[in-house]
């Protein structure tokens, strides 16, 4: 229990980006017979290169860097979505990756059923989720639609429900890829307050954001990534200042953009 942490030791992550991800059997057989390796161009993208990072209990880590610098890939390695090509990942604690809301929502199922489904996917059983259903509907104000299939929700309603479910859990490690909140002003304000409460509850926070003021507000440590490596590690205010300085000098070449798309 006690010691929550994220330890990444000498992590590398390499993608082979095929121009089309899958091959037809015909192509493969033809290639095999003709002893060709690949007919389609394969780009090898080094998303993360020999990265070592230790996040101890209680830390709020912000990650900044240009598009394609490997920030999101790093979050996906931490959450085990991407197994690293080499290196060791050691995560201790109940980890919730909020990389995008609304995972696993099934449009045919009712709001309540979707709450249980999402809970299960995040690792919470029915009993635990049952105690949270009320709070979720209180927050998103959709109690009247609890038994309506999700496909009859407006997109705004579905988003509100997804956000409410995602932020009702009690993570020990919270991974955030941009702080999302969309909707009318009344909703935005409440959503931000709720997100703040979630961030305060979690033992460890890892936040990827292009909004520097968020990094400065929520984090007590920051790393700056470029081409899959950490180029600077320190206090958020120092890093933000340094990062802003380079941005004003010259825009970075974005040849690594392919990594962001993966």
């Amino acid at each position: 229990m006690g010691d929550k942490h994220i330890h990444l030791d000498d992590i590398s992550l390499t993608f082979r980006v095929h121009s089309a991800r899958t091959y037809s059997i015909k192509e493969t057989i033809v290639n095999y017979i003709a002893r060709r390796k690949y007919t389609k161009p394969v780009t090898i993208v080094q998303a993360i290169q020999h990265l070592t990072l230790h996040v101890p209990n209680g830390q709020r880590l912000g990650i900044i860097g240009d598009n394609g610098s490997g920030k999101s890939s790093l979050l996906k390695v931490m959450s085990r979505i991407y197994p690293p090509t080499s290196g060791r990942v050691d995560v201790n604690g109940f980890l919730v990756p909020l990389l995008e809301v609304g995972i696993g929502f099934n449009p045919e199922l009712s709001g309540v059923e979707n709450i249980f489904l999402t809970g299960a996917i995040m690792g919470l059983n029915r009993r635990v989720m049952a105690t949270k259903v009320d709070a979720i509907f209180d927050f998103c104000e959709l109690r009247d639609f609890a038994d309506t299939p999700l496909k009859y929700y407006s997109s705004g309603m579905a988003q509100r429900l997804a956000f409410a479910v995602a932020t009702e859990v009690d993570p020990e490690i919270l991974l955030l890829d941009e702080i999302f909140s969309a909707g009318d002003i009344h909703w935005m304000e409440r959503a931000q307050r709720r997100m703040k409460a979630l961030i305060d509850r979690t033992r460890i926070l890892v936040l990827v954001s292009h909004q520097m003021e968020l990094i400065e507000r929520y984090c007590d440590r920051a790393i700056w990534m470029r081409k899959g490596e950490i180029v600077m590690d320190g206090s958020p205010s120092d890093l933000v200042a340094a990062y802003r300085a380079t941005a004003e000098q010259a825009p970075e070449p974005t040849d690594n953009d392919a990594a962001a798309a993966v």
Partner: peptide, 17 residues
């Protein structure tokens, strides 16, 4: 297993709804 349980019950609900 909780995920599997949910997938199974959602499949049955959707199939026969």
């Amino acid at each position: 297993r909780e995920v599997i349980k949910n997938f199974v019950s959602q499949d049955l609900k959707v199939k026969y709804r």
